[in-house]
Structures are given as C-alpha cells and as structure tokens.
Design a protein around this nucleic acid. Structure first.
Lengths: 342, 342
DNA sequence: CTGTTAGCGCCTTCAC
DNA sequence: GTGAAGGCGCTAACAG
C-alpha cells in the first residue's frame, strides 16, 4: 500500500477508525490495551499522520510563520534560530520566510502563510507593509512584531530599548575626545531607524557637539558608502545604527587603511559573529536577542490561547566596551520580567 | 462570515462550486467572462484558498523541505537563501529546518516534513542519519543531498569537487616555504570531512612534507582548540577544511597575537561574510554555493517531474588568493554544465 | 463550458 | 470505551 492511512491501521489493529484516531491523537479515552494495539499497528505499518487532513479538520496547523527581512543577516539568522527553538519547545513548527529586504516579497510571503493557515505570524515589518499587515490583523490572524514595530497598529511588539545605550555610546565617544561625531542612521521605513536617530539626536543635544548624519537603508552597501561620506566630512568618531551598516563601515575603514577603534573611535551595533574577528575588538551596542525571540514566541502563544497581551515590550540594549564593562543601567527597561536564558 | 470558502465565492459569483474552482486554480476551461466574474467575487470577499484542503485533495503541497545543520552558519544561510529563491521561481515554497547540528533533531524534522507531506526534501545529511534517510527514500519521497552526501545511498547529490583546490592550496603553502603543515580536518561523520582529508593526504604525499592533522567536528570551537594544538605542535602553515573551523582558528590566532596570512601562512575555507573583515585578506578555498543551491533545486524538480537524475554532481571549488588570482583549472569539473548565475 | 458528485485523511459528535 | 457517520475546503471525474 502506498501510504497507510488511519483507516489501514484501524483495520490492522482490528478497531474502528474513530478509535484509532483517539488512540493516536491522545484525545478522548481509549482502553490502555486497545491503545497499545493501535500504536503497535501504526509502528508496524510506518504510519505517518497527514498534517493536512488533521489541520483541515481541526482548524489548527500547529505551525507559525516567521517573516524576516533576510536570513543572511546574522542578526536575523540568530533570531530565527531562537524563535525556532522556543516554538518547538511548545510543540509548534516554524515556516521561515526571508524577504530579501523586499517589501513586495514580504507581501507575497504573507499571502503564502495565510494560505498555509499558519496559526500565527511573527514578523519584523517594514512600515510600508502597513496595509498588508492591517489586512492580516483584520482577518483575525494572531500577529507579533519583533525587532521593529509599526506605531499605532495595536499589534503586540517586542523591540529593543536603545535610548540609554545610545546615550552611553555618545558619552563614551565624547569622553574619548570626539568633537565632530558621525552617525550612520537607518531608514525612516523602519521604526528602529527613526527611533535610533531620535535617540542619537537627543543624546547629542545635551552636549552641543557637532554632528554629521548619513542616512542609509540598513544594508552593508549603505554603511560602506555612508562611512566614506563621513570620512570625507572629517568626522573624528563614528556611531553606527545597525549591524549591517557597521559591517560596511568597517570594511570601508579597512580599505582606507583605518583600523576602527584604534585609529578612529568607533562604536558598532549588535554582537554578531563577524565582529569577533576584529582586532582590536569593536565596542558594540548589544541587543537582547535571546530575550526578544523568546518574548515574541511567548506573545504569540498568549494570543493562541486567546489572551490579548499588551502592545509594547521593550528590552534594554546595552553598550559593551572591549573591557567588558557595561555603562548602561539595565533598570531602564519597561519590561518588568527577568530576561530568560537557557 | 469568518473565512470565505470557495463555496461562498461561487455563490457570490452565481456559479457552481466546481466552476469557481476551475476559474481560481486555472485548471480546466472556463469562459473568460465567467472567470472574471469569479475572480472579482474572490477579490471582493478577500478569498484566500486553503492550502490544506487543496493539498489533501491534489496530493501536492507545492512545498519542499530544506534541512540544514544550522542557519547560523553563514554558508548554510546563504544556501538557504538561494534555494529559497530558486524554489520560488518554480512556484514552490520552502520549509526551512535548522537542525542545530544535532542528528536527533534532524530525525525529528524529517518526520515533521513527512507529516507535512512536502513534495520533496533537500538535505545536507549526517552519515549517522543513514537509516532515517533510507526510510524516507523507501517511502518514495523525492530526496536530494546538498553539500554532503552519503556514499552508496543512490540519492542525487550535489557537492563540491575540492580536490584540485586543496592540492593548489597545499602547493601554495609549500611554495611559500611551509615545512610543517597543519590541517584542520572535519569529522568522519560527514562525507566532506572524509573527502577533504583524503584530498589533503594525497596532495602532501607527492611532496613528502611533514604534516600535523587535527580532527574536529566542523564547529567553531573545534577550530579554536585545533588551532591551539597545531600551534603547540609547531606548524609553520595551516589549511582549514571548513568555514566554521576557519573562524575558530582565526580567533585563536588573533587571541595569541598572531595575524593569519601575515604572521602565519594560512588558507581558510568558504567565502563567507566575516572573512571580509580580515586584514590582510585571507586566502580561501571557495565553493560554488550558488551553483550547488541551483542544481539542488533543479535535481529535486526533475524528480518531481518523475525523472531520475544521476547520482553525483560535483561542482569545482577553487583557491582564491588575495591578489584575486585563481590557481585551479575549472575544467577539472565532472559537471558539464555552465554554472548558472542570475 | 458548466453543474453535480464523490471523496482526499482525519477528528468529532453522537449513539450504543 | 467503542463504533458509525458527518464534514472540514477543495479538486477531479463525470454528466449534461
């Protein structure tokens, strides 16, 4: 027989189809002896339940979607890993969609996930996808924003609180003697872009230092080009607003013969693997990636249980200096819970 | 209404259920005017077809599984990206499973994919998963191995041909004056581990140079520790057999105050993003990742069409020296086709 | 070209 | 505790 169905194993075990179903799914009561007979039959015939049929009937796929801008970005790869692990520990499979930084592709994936009837979606959204996401939310699909949010959309979101870390970074650079501070800013398209720029602006405002801001799109190329512009503008210290732009900026420096953090005070963003190869080590603003991923899954799970978690969850980022000393006071968090680690 | 079904849109359009189905799926003939009426109705009601029901009936999910050891490994992240893009261009969705380098987890995912009734699976297998994979193959599930293979399993596989590149690397190091050559080898558990060691052994045999081999498991930690051992053993040049071990080895060097490729002749493996931050640039053995991913999808597609492609496909890797000069002759490939790029 | 009908494999009442 | 029957949403085979 090509693919044994539950009917076949019922026959093999000498019980009715319904009984076999109950024995296999664990729902409903079955005599111990009967259950064992069914399980044995299933084993013998190498029965693999059809998730499609099960979902069609039960209206539950036990699957969630994770929609990220790009798997090749180590930050999101790590996020995917943790989300996946946490989801699995609550019995959920994850369909991972990598949108190649393309809002249109994100729209398409959103449709695929809806067709697949995933139980819910975790997404790092572009602001431009507002309409699509509103439609998804309107259709009653549980939704969680991670890393970025869309203000005013009333969707539970877990993001970093970078205010204190950015302030610390600015102060550290200024104490180091910076007089003309460069900032590699992200795009207005992402909430993180806007927020971090605002936080930077607020931080320098108190000090009254000269600044040069380069706007980019969170891509490596933008960091590369932006850094070139900053150097041309004669900055004497640099702060970057995300990991990929940091990567590009560092490359530009090295190509120009400047070693970041040695020849030029430089603070990067995110603790991703490539930066471990830098000598001297780069000071970094580190996000609580583990906490964000864990919280995102928890928020989605809460919605699957019918709860409506509050909208905004902020996990503190912190400045990590090469000495290992952190300047940021973690108590600035608006998230009361202790971050979870395994 | 909670979720419009095809029945609802049939009613809305004033046609029979079957007609609506044909109009929406494109199979079977429908009058142009009728089709437009149906499509309009679907649009109006925001109809999203239920992939579950469709798959249950058609026995086709239009979905494939991609099972890799770890998304956090940039090599596999990139592979996932290309596979995903190629699959999408032939109308297939990809369920990405990251096994966290754990054979047991790989086994579990294999089961999930079978439950989900994916149309086929692309996997970078552990040799220890032989039994599981044999069962999957036995069940008639189209299967393709990528990056690694399991000898004698009669499953189409697309892997790198690293023989020439490794020989070139050894020669380059020896010409550079190496007298005691260290090799960071992968595990016997992966075909790439065995092959590359054999190729290294063959390459040094002709020359009669002294060698020190450290065995690892393709993890960063193994590269780190292995490098320490090689340094203790007094090697004067090093070749690493994969990207993560290269990463670990480079870290160990830097911690010890040795700059790879400047203070110590060093050839790494795979052209992954982190290595772009190294100064001086690291000589690398580069695989044709794009070609492997593309070929893998093509081989799976062939099987979905009922063809039985030949078992082994080898794409040449090449040595890339910082000058940009490649020593390997690409004609060593056993793969006749021109690698595809987009 | 269109309407009708019969399941795909499973879960879930409802009787017994 | 178990069996029988209905239906989830859709496609495919068959009439008309």
């Amino acid at each position: 027989m090509s693919r044994p169905t539950i009917k076949d194993i019922a026959a093999e075990a000498g019980v009715a189809l319904g009984t076999a179903s109950r024995a296999l799914s664990g729902n409903g009561s079955v005599a111990t002896e009967t259950r064992e007979r069914v399980l044995a039959a299933a084993e013998r015939l190498d029965f693999i339940p059809n998730a499609q049929a099960r979902a069609l009937r039960s209206e539950r796929t036990e699957t969630i979607g994770l929609l990220i801008p790009d798997v090749r970005n180590p930050f999101f790869a790590e996020l995917a890993h943790v989300v996946e692990r946490e989801a699995r520990s609550s019995g959920l499979s994850v369909v991972l969609c990598s949108a190649n930084e393309d809002p249109e592709l994100m729209r398409q994936y959103m449709l695929v996930l809806r067709q697949q009837r995933v139980d819910g979606i975790i997404v790092a959204p572009f602001s431009t996808a507002h309409d699509t996401l509103q439609a998804v939310k309107g259709a009653g699909m549980p939704l969680v924003f991670v890393d970025r949010t869309i203000p005013g959309m009333d969707v539970p979101a877990v993001v970093s609180d970078t205010g204190a870390a950015i302030r610390d970074a600015v102060h550290a650079l200024v104490s180091g003697g910076a007089q003309r501070l460069g900032f590699l800013s992200g795009p207005a398209q992402a909430s993180t872009g806007v927020e971090r720029l605002a936080e930077f602006t607020a931080a320098v405002e108190d000090i009254g230092i000269e600044t040069v801001v380069q706007h980019g799109d969170f891509q490596e190329e933008a960091g590369h080009d932006g850094m070139r512009a900053l150097l041309a503008a004669g900055v004497d210290a640099v702060l970057a607003a995300d990991s990929r732009m940091t990567l590009g900026a560092v490359r530009e420096c090295l190509e120009t013969g400047i070693v970041p953090a040695r020849d030029l005070p430089f603070i990067g963003f995110d603790d991703i693997a490539p930066f471990a190869l830098l000598q001297p080590p780069l000071p970094l603003i580190c996000q609580d990636l583990e906490g964000m991923a864990t919280t995102a899954v928890r928020l989605l799970n809460a919605q699957l249980r019918g709860e409506t978690p509050r909208t905004e969850h902020r996990l503190p980022a912190h400045l990590r200096l090469p000495t290992g000393e952190a300047l940021t006071n973690p108590s600035t968090s608006t998230e009361a819970e202790v971050p979870h680690h395994d």
